[in-house]
C-alpha cells in the first residue's frame, strides 16, 4: 500500500468561476478512497474557503495535498500581498475584501476562521510583500 497520495492544484487569481474546482475534485477522490464522510466535509469546506482566499486576496496560488492513512494535509501557498496582522485577520467578520468582491457575496470575513474551525491542525505564516503559507490537517479516524 502506498504510504501517501500526493495531489497538486493551481488556483488562478481573480477567477471566481474556477475557485472551488480543487475542493470539488478532492472531495470526489476522498469519497473513492473511503475517507469518512465527516472528514470529507471538513476538508471540503476548509479547502473551498482557502481557494476563495487565494483567488480574492493573493491573485492565485498553489495547493499541495497529502492523503495518508490518518490525515488529509493541505498546504496553501501564495506570493500575494501577505497579512500584516494575523490575529486580526483570523477574527470572525474581519475582511479586507474589496467592495466588488463583497457584492458577489464573498468577503464576509469568515474565510480564515472557517478554515481554522474545520481543520484539526492549522498553521498560518505570512510576510507582507512576500506571501502567505497556510497548513491545514483534517484527521481521519
Amino acid at each position: 500500500m502506498p504510504d501517501c497520495i500526493y495531489l497538486h492544484y493551481t488556483v488562478p487569481g481573480d477567477d471566481f468561476t474556477r475557485a472551488g474546482e480543487a475542493s470539488a475534485d478532492l472531495k470526489l477522490r476522498l469519497k473513492k478512497l473511503g475517507i469518512p464522510p465527516e472528514a470529507v466535509r471538513k476538508v471540503s469546506i476548509a479547502l473551498y474557503e482557502g481557494e476563495i482566499n487565494l483567488a480574492i486576496h493573493a491573485h492565485g496560488g498553489e495547493i499541495d495535498v497529502q492523503i495518508t492513512d490518518d490525515a488529509v494535509c493541505m498546504t496553501l501557498s501564495d506570493q500575494g500581498p501577505g497579512i500584516a496582522d494575523i490575529p486580526l485577520a483570523m477574527s470572525e467578520g474581519y475582511s479586507t475584501a474589496p467592495d466588488e468582491v463583497r457584492s458577489l457575496g464573498f468577503g464576509a470575513g469568515m474565510g480564515l476562521p472557517n478554515m481554522k474551525k474545520y481543520s484539526d491542525e492549522f498553521d498560518i505564516q505570512s510576510t507582507v510583500g512576500v506571501g502567505t503559507t497556510i497548513k491545514m490537517a483534517v484527521h481521519v479516524d
Binding site: 500500500m1 502506498p2 478512497l33 473511503g34
Partner: peptide, 20 residues
Amino acid sequence: TYEPVLELGRTRSERFARYS
C-alpha cells in the same frame, strides 16, 4: 443509509493501492 458505491475497495489499503 449511505451506500458507498464510489469507494474503490473494501479495505482502506485496497482503496489506496487501487487509487495509485
